[in-house]
Each structure stands twice: as structure tokens, then as C-alpha cells.
């Protein structure tokens, strides 16, 4: 008899993370497929009120783990808290979404339990053993693996699950579980926060206007900024741009930067090297503006304008303003 499926549901100071829907949807689907019970794991007292939101995705049980050292996020305290829960309920699977925290916390859990950890999976199946497909090279390649362990610890690749509410009158039981944690693990709890962006961010924006080498200079981004502002979006850039010091690395879209999934990605003067593409490929629509019709970004985009971005962007700005006036 296999144990239940635990899914780590992220929140920040009681605010449910945008990835939570992906995590809960993936876990419910796996639970149905394996005929296992699924339970959400919420860490810290701040998360106690989040159970009802988990219910919307059809999960019927949530554990809320509490302890004085779980006041704010810390990879070691959160990891050990989940280990304590796992020791009590012997799950068959521990899941998360492969965000920064999702991978960091499950790596802690796996290291502490001495179990394998399959990060950024796209397919999870149970045959004679756990058969997993996971991404390599940020998504350019896939790797099939067999995990030799009764307990599967895996994260789902971020943006590869479409969150889906579960229809009906969903009820959830929230069980508060006090866990005993060694206070020294509080050594990696967040000490301070600096808020730099209010509202829309690169990873949540529905419009991202991004520039590459073709923008030509740091000043060249002013037009992209203006268009992004008009559309309530954010400016992104390629690795060539940050390497040239034109933009902060915080704006970089790609394997070593931010992975985005906007409604539309407007890629200006970006050639579309693999490392950039994997950060942008989850976009629902892509518009490439480039003088080179053969550029990788153009051939992969659903829409393109083959012209100089410094002529096209001002014209688009004017047209947006004209239609709104």
C-alpha cells in the first residue's frame, strides 16, 4: 500500500505564490492517475488561511506545518519541516513546482532523507519503478530517467502545467501539524527584504518587450521602455545585453535569467540563441522584430516584422496612442 502524495505549495508571508495552481493541478492529476490521496503542504503559521484556495484545485487535504522557527522563509527550516511531516505520514511522492524555492526546498528534503531528487520533470509515471522525463539544458533536451527509490521526490518544470480549477463544491480539511525543529536551522531564514518592484514583474507580466544586441546601446532601450509602459508590461533583454552592461541582469530572459510566460513576447533585435529561447518559449505568443528574416527568433515566432526595430517601435507607440485617444 503506497502512501499519499504530498505537494509543497509555495507562499510568501501568507501570500499564495503564482506557481501554486500549477503544483496543485499536477498533484491532483497524479493522484487520480495513481489512485492516491493528495495533500497540500503549507509551511508556517502564515499559511494557515490558504487551505480554501487549495480546495479550488480539487485537493481535499492540507497540512499546515507550524513552529516558532517557521516565521519566514528559510530553505533549511522549510526543508526539515517537510522531512518531519514525511517521517510521520510516509508519503509515496513529494512534489513541487521547479521555481527557485520549489527546487531549493525539495533538494533540502531529498538531501536530508537521503533520497534521489528529479528536478524540473515533465512526465511522472509509475511502472515497475518511477519513470520520469525531466528537462536538461533549460528545456532544449529531455532526459528519461528511472528513479530507484520507493519515495519519489520531484519538481515539475515551471510553466509546463496549465493550472486548472476543479469544478464543484470543493471541501478541504486543514490539519495543523506542530513540528519540532532544531532552532539552529534558523540560520538561513530571511533576515530582510528590499522591495524594488511594485505590481507587475517580469515573470508575471502579460506583455514583455525585450531587446537584444540589435537594440545597439543602453539608450536604445528607452523606446522599449515606453512601449512596455503603455501596455502595462515589463522590459526584458537577452544575455548579450547584460554582458554589454546595457541592462541589469534582473531583466535577463533566458536559461540563466528569468523564465517568462506572457500573453505576448515582443522580441526586438534578438537572434534567439538556445540559452535565450528556453527562457521565452513558454510565451503564449511571440512577435519578433528583426532585420534578419533567418534569425532563430523570427523562424520560431508566430508573428514577425522584418524591419529595423528603431523604426517599428516608435510607429507602434504612435499607433497605440492614436487608437486610445
Amino acid at each position: 500500500m503506497m502512501g499519499e502524495i504530498l505537494v509543497f505549495v509555495e507562499h510568501d508571508q501568507g501570500q499564495l505564490s503564482p506557481s501554486a495552481g500549477e503544483a496543485l493541478t499536477a498533484a491532483r492529476e497524479l493522484g487520480e492517475r495513481l489512485s492516491q490521496k493528495t495533500a497540500a503542504v503549507l509551511v508556517g503559521q502564515a499559511a494557515e488561511g490558504l487551505g480554501t484556495m487549495c480546495a479550488e484545485y480539487g485537493v481535499q487535504l492540507a497540512y499546515c506545518l507550524t513552529s516558532p522557527v517557521l516565521s519566514d522563509y528559510g530553505p533549511e527550516t522549510w526543508g526539515q519541516a517537510i522531512v518531519e511531516l514525511a517521517n510521520q505520514c510516509s508519503p509515496s511522492v513529494i512534489l513541487s513546482v521547479g521555481t527557485d524555492r520549489g527546487n531549493e526546498v525539495l533538494a533540502q528534503v531529498a538531501a536530508r532523507l537521503g533520497a534521489p531528487f528529479a528536478a524540473n520533470s515533465t512526465v511522472v509515471q509509475r511502472g515497475d519503478a518511477w519513470e520520469i522525463t525531466r528537462v536538461q539544458w533549460g528545456g532544449s533536451l529531455l532526459e528519461d530517467i528511472v528513479v530507484d527509490s520507493e519515495l519519489l521526490i520531484a519538481s515539475y518544470n515551471h510553466h509546463s502545467i496549465e493550472p486548472a480549477f476543479f469544478p464543484g463544491d470543493n471541501e478541504i480539511e486543514v490539519r495543523t501539524v506542530g513540528v519540532e525543529l532544531d532552532p539552529t536551522l534558523g540560520r538561513t531564514v530571511i533576515r530582510d527584504r528590499v522591495t524594488l518592484t511594485e505590481g507587475v514583474t517580469l515573470s508575471t507580466a502579460s506583455v514583455v518587450v525585450s531587446g537584444g544586441r540589435g537594440v545597439g546601446s543602453a539608450d536604445g532601450f528607452a523606446q522599449l521602455e515606453e512601449l512596455a509602459d503603455l501596455l502595462g508590461g515589463r522590459v526584458g533583454c537577452s544575455r548579450a545585453v547584460t554582458n554589454n552592461g546595457w541592462r541589469s541582469h534582473a531583466d535577463q530572459v533566458g536559461q540563466t535569467g528569468t523564465r517568462i510566460a506572457p500573453e505576448i513576447y515582443i522580441a526586438c533585435g534578438i537572434s534567439g540563441a538556445i540559452q535565450h529561447w528556453v527562457g521565452a518559449m513558454a510565451s503564449k505568443n511571440i512577435l519578433a522584430i528583426n532585420t534578419d528574416r533567418e534569425a532563430n527568433m523570427v523562424t520560431k515566432a508566430g508573428y514577425a516584422v522584418i524591419a529595423d526595430l528603431h523604426e517599428v517601435i516608435p510607429a507602434v507607440i504612435e499607433e497605440v496612442k492614436r487608437r486610445r485617444s
Binding site: 523570427v298 520560431k300 508566430g302 508573428y303 516584422v305 522584418i306 524591419a307 517599428v312 487608437r323
Partner: peptide, 17 residues
């Protein structure tokens, strides 16, 4: 992906919008 080319000059702005 079948790339839909909206234009080859700034005149494509209307189709972009």
C-alpha cells in the same frame, strides 16, 4: 511554427496593434 510576417517596414505598426 508558421511565421506570420506582419510587414517589412514601420508601416506594419497598424497590424502589430
Amino acid at each position: 511554427t508558421e511565421t506570420n510576417v506582419l510587414g517589412e517596414s514601420a508601416a506594419a505598426a497598424a497590424r502589430v496593434v
